[in-house]
C-alpha cells in the first residue's frame, strides 16, 4: 500500500527551478533513500514535503489525504515528522523536555490547568514523562534525560532529534543526513537504530544520505536527484549500478 505519493512536484525560486517534476511513491514500512550531489534539491524536497516551502505545482498525498500546500503543523499532525541536516534541537531545554515538546499534540490540558496545577496536570505530566522516558530508553538517552540538549555529544544529539520526531507519532519519518559528521562506528550504530525504529515503531522512513555504506546497507529503494530532477529510481542495487548515476554522483 502506498503511504506517500508525490506527483509532478516542482518549485521555482525566481528564475531558478530548484525541483522539477519530482515523483516518489513510498510503500508502508519501506526504508527509502534519496541521494544526489550537493545542491541537487534533496533538502528542498523535504522542505516541500513538510510545508516549509509551498510547491509551485504538483500534488502530495499522504495515506490517501491530499496535503499539498498545507501548513507545517498540519502536515505534522497528518503524520510526517522530520529531522534536520543541521541539528535543530531546543538547546536550552532538557533532553526529556525536548521529547516532551514532541509529545505536545499527543497529550493535552489547558493553560489554566497548568497554571493552577489542577489534578489533571499531574496526571497528564506523569503520562508524558513515562512516554518520553520510554522513547529515550530506545535511543539509549535515558541516563542523560536531565542534561541540557546542547550538552549532549554530537551523535546523541542526532539520536535525540529522531526521538523527538518519533514523539509526534508520525506515519512517515524524514531523516535529513542522519549520519553527517559521524564516525564509522557511530554510523553503523545509527543503521541499527534506524532499522530498529522501522521494525518496532512500524515506521516508514525516507532518508537523505551521502554515506553510501549506510544507503546501500539499509535502503530498499532509492531515488537519485540531480539538478532538481529525478535521474534514476528503483531497487538500491540497480540504481547504484546505473551508469548515469555513477557518472553524475558516485564517480567512475
Amino acid at each position: 500500500m502506498t503511504l506517500l505519493d508525490v506527483r509532478n512536484l516542482g518549485i521555482s525560486f525566481g528564475g531558478l527551478r530548484a525541483v522539477d517534476n519530482f515523483e516518489i511513491q513510498i510503500k508502508k514500512g519501506q526504508l527509502y533513500g534519496l541521494i544526489g550531489p550537493n545542491g541537487a534539491g534533496k533538502t528542498t524536497v523535504f522542505n516541500l514535503l513538510t510545508g516549509v516551502y509551498k510547491p509551485s505545482d504538483g500534488k502530495i498525498t499522504l495515506d490517501g489525504k491530499n496535503i499539498t500546500g498545507a501548513a507545517t503543523i498540519d502536515i505534522n499532525k497528518a503524520g510526517i515528522a522530520r529531522t534536520f541536516q543541521n541539528i535543530r534541537l531546543f538547546k536550552d531545554l532538557s533532553v526529556l523536555d525536548n521529547v516532551k515538546v514532541g509529545l505536545h499534540n499527543q497529550y493535552s490540558y489547558s493553560t489554566i490547568t497548568g497554571i493552577l496545577r489542577l489534578p489533571k496536570y499531574f496526571k497528564v505530566e506523569k503520562e508524558m514523562n513515562e512516554k518520553a522516558m520510554e522513547l529515550l530508553k530506545v535511543f539509549d538517552l535515558d541516563k542523560e534525560a536531565d542534561f541540557l540538549a546542547s550538552n549532549l555529544p554530537y551523535g546523541k544529539q542526532r539520536k535525540l532529534e529522531i526521538a523527538r520526531a518519533l514523539a509526534t507519532n508520525p506515519k512517515l519519518l524524514l531523516l535529513d543526513e542522519p549520519a553527517a559528521g559521524m564516525n564509522p562506528n557511530e554510523t553503523s550504530e545509527l543503521m541499527d537504530t534506524i532499522r530498529f525504529v522501522r521494525d518496532n515503531f512500524d515506521m516508514t522512513i525516507l532518508l537523505i544520505e551521502h554515506d553510501m555504506k549506510l544507503v546501500s546497507g539499509i535502503c530498499e529503494e532509492l531515488t537519485v536527484l540531480n539538478f532538481g530532477q529525478v535521474l534514476a529510481k528503483g531497487k538500491t542495487a540497480e540504481v547504484l549500478n546505473d551508469p548515469q548515476v555513477i557518472k553524475a554522483y558516485l564517480g567512475e
Binding site: 513538510t50 516549509v52 507545517t72 503543523i73 505534522n76 499532525k77 515528522a81 522530520r82 534536520f84 535543530r88 534541537l89 531546543f90 538547546k91 536550552d92 531545554l93 515538546v101 514532541g102 505536545h104 499534540n105 523527538r164 520526531a165 514523539a167 509526534t168
Partner: peptide, 11 residues
C-alpha cells in the same frame, strides 16, 4: 530555541 523545529513537531 528553534522556531523551525517547533513548527516541525506541530506547535
Amino acid at each position: 530555541d528553534n522556531r523551525i523545529a517547533a513548527e516541525s513537531v506541530g506547535i
